[in-house]
């Protein structure tokens, strides 16, 4: 799959106005979206890849060469994304909640009004994003993408087993609009407050939403317009998709300036 993107920086004071404009444009109310983003970095375990450099006399078969290239090729940062809700913030972990409650059930009763966040039940999906394709062929950012559903709960163990180490996590908060084939996401990045929490493993609990610190303290938002193309090798469809995006850019010209992103800022390769 490929995604085609355009971005715009939205100053904080324009946020509300733009929300209204987008509501008008798409003729639909926005969907609020909160996501936990865990950034993972691939690392190469010593000795895991057996390459014998030197001894160039015996030429390797092309398949072996290709395989070596794949194994030693670029490594990437990947993200594990989990949808959360507002009430997950500032709530107690399920274990404490059940410990406090008089009921000895493993889970609180259905009708229970308490706020609890169960990390073990958190849904996750793995999101791979390649570095955007080079070249000024089109005026939109194009990159290869792939998503995969992960088991619920602890993601650190499987990710470590696959050769990824946890880097950091943040929250993406924003509103989603759908406009024809285009998904518009007006978001900001929230970072976790510097508290006593160990920054290494992903948090089991989330602090209150109001304690979260925006990455951009001036209150700015980012507007992202994306079209996802299943068959990225079909130039016709890719062209059509970029034309749709450019059409939207033209439509929103007076409100925001949608532009392609700096390719290297979206570089996911591990250096």
């Amino acid at each position: 799959m490929h995604e085609l993107l355009l971005f715009a920086s939205v100053p904080g004071q324009q946020h509300h106005e733009l929300l209204q404009q987008l509501t008008g444009l798409t003729a639909a109310q926005p969907t609020h979206r909160l996501e936990r983003h865990l950034v993972f970095k691939a690392y190469r375990r010593p000795g895991s890849v057996n390459t014998r450099i030197g001894g160039s006399q015996d030429l390797q078969a092309p398949e072996i060469q290709r395989l070596t290239k794949m194994l030693n090729g670029a490594m990437f940062y990947t993200q594990v994304v989990g949808p959360v809700t507002e009430k997950d913030f500032g709530s107690v972990p399920l274990s404490q909640f059940t410990a406090r409650s008089t009921v000895n059930d493993k889970r609180p009763a259905e009708g229970d009004q308490g706020n609890w966040y169960d990390f073990e039940d958190q849904r996750w999906r793995l999101e791979f994003r390649d570095i955007p394709e080079p070249g000024a062929r089109t005026t939109v950012t194009t990159r290869l993408m792939a998503n995969a559903t992960l088991p619920r709960g602890d993601v650190l163990t499987p990710m470590n087993a696959w050769g990824y180490s946890f880097v950091t996590e943040y929250i993406m908060e924003g509103d989603v609009f759908i406009h024809n084939d285009i998904v518009l996401f007006l978001y900001r990045v929230l970072t976790f407050p510097a508290d006593s929490h160990d920054p290494q493993p992903p948090r089991q609990t989330l602090p209150a939403l109001r304690e979260m610190i925006p990455l951009d303290r001036s209150g700015g938002y980012v507007l992202q317009a994306v079209v996802i193309v299943t068959d990225g090798s079909n130039p016709e469809i890719m062209k059509l998709a970029s034309q749709r995006l450019l059409g939207l850019k033209e439509q929103l010209k007076s409100a925001v300036k949608l532009e392609q992103a700096d390719r290297l800022s979206l570089d996911t390769r591990v250096k």
């Binding site: 983003h37 950034v39 943040y170 990045v189 992103a261 700096d262 290297l264 800022s265």
Partner: peptide, 10 residues
């Protein structure tokens, strides 16, 4: 924007 993206990606 590019610094926001860099943080988001890496």
């Amino acid at each position: 924007l590019d610094e926001i993206f860099r943080y988001m990606m890496t």
